[in-house]
Design a protein around this nucleic acid. Structure first.
Ligand SMILES: Nc1ncnc2c1ncn2[C@@H]1O[C@H](COP(=O)(O)OP(=O)(O)OP(=O)(O)O)[C@@H](O)[C@H]1O
Length: 682
DNA sequence: AGCACATCACTTTTT
DNA sequence: GTGATGTGCT
């Protein structure tokens, strides 16, 4: 049996109540996630086939970690010869779960199984096209705002958040969905909504999923939206074996449609719901906990909680003030190094948290300068790079030629005589004919409508795509043979893309970086040694899926000691011994924009989440001025700082700690000596 | 058709 | 400071 000694009585009750609906509503660091992991192991030990267990996490990273923990806890059943590998529990995000379901069934909804997943920039591409067609150019609405409102509209549909029926928005949504369908593409919302549609139209598919997922658990449940709730409900309404864990104070995705009501009103949908509260915090010192509690008390309409910790008072929380973000970054880095050298705290126990992605820049610069290894979690920046987007567009097009957005992106990259003007005409023709752009380009009738030279360019492009697709199919026959990455690189070489990349960038160093990033990404398509061989097209599809759904997929190399740089949103669920929260300024936290949207409470919850990540020490800092578009602008301390009790927070000393000081020179020497004996790579 | 250069607006969070 | 968009030259 599974050892439940590492759990308190309430946790144990949650783990062993395996049948019927259970809600664990508890504050930060009380061991909610731990309950889920133990519960999975418990179910398996009790003899539930692992394949019947579904655990939904908020991120792919969390899913990977949970699976790993479960594997450690559950002794691997030995495999007898000839027997299939024992099934594993399904641990993934809502979106990954839905992709798996849709790959099997989406043809029943009129899509082809080779559908691609559109990310935000591709969604925006579709919206821009629609707006240019529907609205007059004078009062063009912001495409981003339109996209956000469409997303809200469709996710709230069929839920208590009653939809306001704006006819224009409905019309736009209709057009948008049609456009994506025509491209055989789905967006993030579609993944959930189409799965729901599948369940409604094809009860046998729902039945199959219900039979498969007989024990369902959801982590970070406070951040699920209405559609995700409907999905959970669809799967569990019958057997009612549902266990969700969450904390209303940690709901930080309201802007994405998350509904705390899913958590607070769960009993309406699951009468007889067993609610379990956990109050002991196993993570932080009492000072950190008290600060967090004092802050979050300022929020209205919350479930009050009595968090306590047996970890003692701990060190004071330090508040730093700096002149600008460069100084802030430098001081944080010096402090991190002091911690490592004098207090022997590894980098991996230290994290810097911030509200917005750009804030990582000065930190990265300072860390690099000090030769401190770090890893940056989340942040789309990597996939926003032009060469990566181009690569993904080519690959998507090869798998799914109807993908107009990808086609239009790379049709003339590198230049091959298909000008913007030509592509616009093709696009118009494709709309008239009710076909994808690619199908339109294949039509001999259309080709002859263009000047000879352009017509030739069109034919050559179609030939290129056809030939390359055939090549990809042929690769299927030699699974162990040529590496997929070699083939992709060869393709980019042949079409002159690599040369173009170098030529169009005048700074040779930048060009080299771009090239390296591209090659690295392509190399990550190849399977690892121990992974089973897979036909090339399937491999490619999986690669695209992973890239679309999992932003931090490649930071999985071998674990090396490194400082974590992370946005507050992505740090939910994590913990670090020593935490810095930087940029605690009005306009940043709380963010100006959230103030306008009236979501100050959610900003406060963000700060709460950030504080409660810390186990032992917590540093807060703000800057008197900050660079905005290269312009230094005055800034003021966050109003949330005033909400922290004064006796818990100490102003830091004027100077940042000196690495070499009379008092610690000896320790430093000892540290150096040790480093020389055990050299670490940097 | 394709490229180089100027000008403009822009500031959030992510599956 | 960046990246998207537009203009004008070859
Ligand atoms: N019963 C326990 N005994 C000792 N340590 C525990 C116990 N339960 C949880 N912990 C530890 O407390 C820490 C927080 O646990 P966990 O991440 O599961 O909490 P959580 O409630 O999910 O937190 P959050 O809501 O902040 O994400 C972890 O380090 C975990 O190992």
């Amino acid at each position: 049996m599974i050892d439940l000694a590492g759990l308190n009585p309430q946790q144990r009750e949650a783990v062993t109540t395996t049948e019927g609906p259970v809600l664990i509503l508890a504050g930060a660091g009380t061991g909610k996630t731990r309950v889920i992991t133990h519960r999975i192991a418990w179910l398996i030990a009790k003899g539930v086939p692992p394949g019947h267990i579904l655990a939904v996490t908020f991120t792919n990273k969390a899913a990977r970690e949970m699976l790993e923990r479960v594997n450690q806890m559950v002794p691997r059943r030995r495999r007898r010869a000839g027997q299939a590998a024992p099934e594993r529990p399904t641990i993934c995000t809502f979106h990954s779960l839905c992709v798996r379901i849709l790959r099997r069934h989406i043809h029943r909804l009129g899509y082809k199984p080779n559908f691609v997943i559109y990310d935000e920039s591709e969604q925006l591409g579709v919206i821009k096209r629609l707006l240019s067609r529907l609205a007059n150019p004078k009062d063009r609405p912001d495409p981003g705002a339109v996209l956000a409102s469409l997303s809200r509209l469709r996710n709230a549909a069929g839920s208590r958040a009653a939809a306001e029926p704006d006819p224009l928005a409905l019309r736009l949504l209709e057009e948008y969905r049609r456009a994506l369908r025509a491209c055989n593409a789905v967006d993030f919302d579609d993944l959930i909504l189409l799965t729901l549609e599948l369940f409604e139209k094809h009860p046998d598919a729902l039945e199959e999923c219900r039979r498969r997922h007989r024990y369902v658990m959801v982590d970070e449940y406070q951040d699920t939206n209405a559609a995700q709730f409907r999905l959970v409900h669809a799967l569990t309404a019958e057997h009612r074996n549902l266990c969700v864990v969450g904390d209303d104070d940690q709901s930080i995705y309201g802007w994405r449609g998350a509904e705390i009501a899913n958590l607070l009103d769960l009993e309406k949908y699951y009468p007889g719901l067993k609610v379990i509260k956990l109050e002991q915090n196993y993570r932080s010192t009492n000072r950190i906990l008290k600060a967090a509690n004092a802050l979050i008390r300022n929020n209205p309409r919350r479930r009050p909680k009595n968090l306590w910790s047996a970890h003692g008072e701990g060190e004071p929380i330090l508040l730093h003030v700096f002149d600008d973000e460069a100084q802030e970054a430098q001081a944080v880095v010096e402090h991190i190094e002091t911690n490592r050298r004098i207090r022997r705290i590894p980098w991996s126990e230290q994290a810097v948290l911030f509200r917005t992605n750009i804030q990582s820049r000065p930190l990265e610069a300072a860390l690099r300068k000090a030769r401190v290894r770090y890893h940056l979690v989340g942040g789309q920046s990597f996939f926003d790079r032009r060469e990566i987007r181009d690569l993904l567009a080519y690959l998507k097009l090869l798998l799914n030629p109807d993908d107009d957005i990808s086609l239009l992106r790379i049709a003339n990259v590198p230049a091959r005589g298909l000008s913007d003007r030509t592509m616009e005409r093709l696009l118009a023709a494709s709309q008239e004919r009710g076909q994808s752009v690619y199908q339109t380009m294949r039509s001999p009738v259309v080709q002859t409508e263009f000047p000879r030279r352009t017509g030739g360019a069109i034919t050559r492009f179609v030939d290129l795509v056809e030939r390359t697709r055939a090549e990809l199919e042929a690769l299927r026959a030699e699974p162990g043979g040529r590496k997929l990455s070699d083939w992709v690189l060869g393709f980019l070489q042949r079409i002159g893309y690599l040369e173009d990349l170098r030529r169009l960038e005048k700074d040779p160093e930048v060009a080299e970086n771009r090239h390296r990033a591209l090659v690295e990404t392509i190399r990550s398509m190849d399977p690892l040694e121990r992974e089973p061989a897979e036909p090339a097209p399937a491999r490619l599809q999986r690669f695209l899926e992973e890239v679309s759904l999992d932003s931090d997929r490649d930071e999985d190399d071998r674990p090396r000691d490194a400082v974590t740089l992370i946005t507050i949103h992505s740090c939910k669920g994590l913990e670090f011994g020593h935490v810095w929260i930087v940029g605690l300024e009005e306009g940043l936290l709380p963010h100006t924009r959230s103030k306008m949207e009236g979501s100050l409470d959610e900003e406060r919850r963000l700060f709460y989440v950030a504080i409660t990540r810390a186990r032992k020490t917590l540093h807060l800092s703000w800057c008197r001025a900050r660079r905005k578009y290269g312009q230094l602008q005055a800034s003021h301390p966050s109003c949330f700082l005033k909400e922290l009790p004064e006796d818990l927070v100490e102003p830091a000393e004027k100077q940042p700690p000196r690495l070499v000081e009379a008092g610690n020179a000896k320790a430093l020497l000892a540290a150096f000596r040790q480093e020389l004996n055990l050299p670490e790579e940097t």
